[in-house]
C-alpha cells in the first residue's frame, strides 16, 4: 500500500510541476479578444527604424539626387532653399562644436531648437526613419524609399558628414558615424525597476 502510494506520488508530483511550468511559460491568451493582423498588415510602411539601421528597406540615393528632390518635393518651401534658412527646423548647421556638450540637447545648441539641425542627431538611420514617417508634413508616404535615401545623403553631405558622391543605402547609412554620437548618454545598462532614479542619483 505504502509502496504504491509513494510510487504514485513520485509520478504525479513531478508531472504536476512540469505541467505548471509549461502553463506559465506558454503565457496563453486569457481573453482571446483582438484580431490577428496579417503579415502584410504588419509590414508597416512607416515602421520605426532601429538606431543601428535594422529595418532600413532596400533602395539607395546620393546627395546629388537628394538636392533635386529637396527642391522639387517641396522640402525647401519650409526648410529654406538649402536647408539652412528655415523657418521650419534647420537641417544644415555649422560645424561649431559643443552643441551637444551639457545638459540635454533640448536646451543646447545655438539658437535653441533651430540650432540643433540633424548634425547633432546621434544616429544616422533615424534621419531616414523620421523623413519616411513624418515628411512632408501631412503628406506622409509621398516619398519613395530611394527619395528618402537621397534626401538623407543630401543632408549628410551638406553637413559635411559624408562626401559628395557617396551612395546611401541600408548598409552604408548604418555605418555613418554622426559627429555628436559620443556626446550622448548611452542606453541604460541597468534594467528599469521602480526607484531607479533615486538609486542612480544617490550614487
Amino acid at each position: 500500500m505504502k509502496d504504491s502510494f509513494s510510487t504514485l506520488y513520485s509520478v504525479i508530483v513531478p508531472t504536476l510541476v512540469v505541467a505548471c511550468n509549461v502553463a506559465v511559460a506558454a503565457q496563453g491568451p486569457t481573453y482571446k479578444i483582438g484580431r490577428t493582423p496579417t503579415q502584410q498588415e504588419l509590414r508597416f510602411a512607416d515602421a520605426a527604424i532601429r538606431p543601428d539601421g535594422q529595418g532600413l528597406p532596400p533602395g539607395s540615393g546620393t546627395a546629388e539626387q537628394g538636392a533635386l528632390i529637396f527642391s522639387v518635393r517641396g522640402c525647401a518651401g519650409c526648410h529654406g532653399p538649402t536647408g539652412a534658412e528655415g523657418p521650419a527646423p534647420l537641417l544644415v548647421t555649422s560645424r561649431d562644436p559643443g552643441q551637444a556638450g551639457r545638459g540635454t540637447v533640448h536646451h543646447e545648441g545655438v539658437g535653441g531648437f533651430a540650432g540643433r539641425g540633424v548634425r547633432n542627431w546621434p544616429f544616422a538611420p533615424l534621419i531616414w526613419s523620421f523623413i519616411n514617417r513624418s515628411m512632408p508634413l501631412n503628406q506622409q508616404g509621398y516619398l519613395t524609399a530611394n527619395e528618402v535615401y537621397g534626401l538623407v545623403a543630401f543632408l549628410l553631405e551638406r553637413n559635411e558628414i559624408i562626401k559628395k558622391g557617396e551612395v546611401m543605402d541600408a548598409k552604408s547609412l548604418a555605418q555613418v558615424k554622426m559627429p555628436g554620437h559620443d556626446n550622448y548618454a548611452p542606453p541604460p545598462s541597468v534594467e528599469w525597476t521602480p526607484g531607479l532614479r533615486q538609486r542612480e542619483i544617490g550614487k
Binding site: 545638459g103 540635454t104 540637447v105 546621434p122 533615424l126 559620443d182 548618454a185
Partner: peptide, 13 residues
C-alpha cells in the same frame, strides 16, 4: 534624440 536625450556629461541619463 532631438529634444529629450541627455548628453553624456549628465549624471542622470
Amino acid at each position: 534624440q532631438s529634444h529629450y536625450m541627455n548628453t553624456a556629461r549628465v549624471k542622470e541619463r
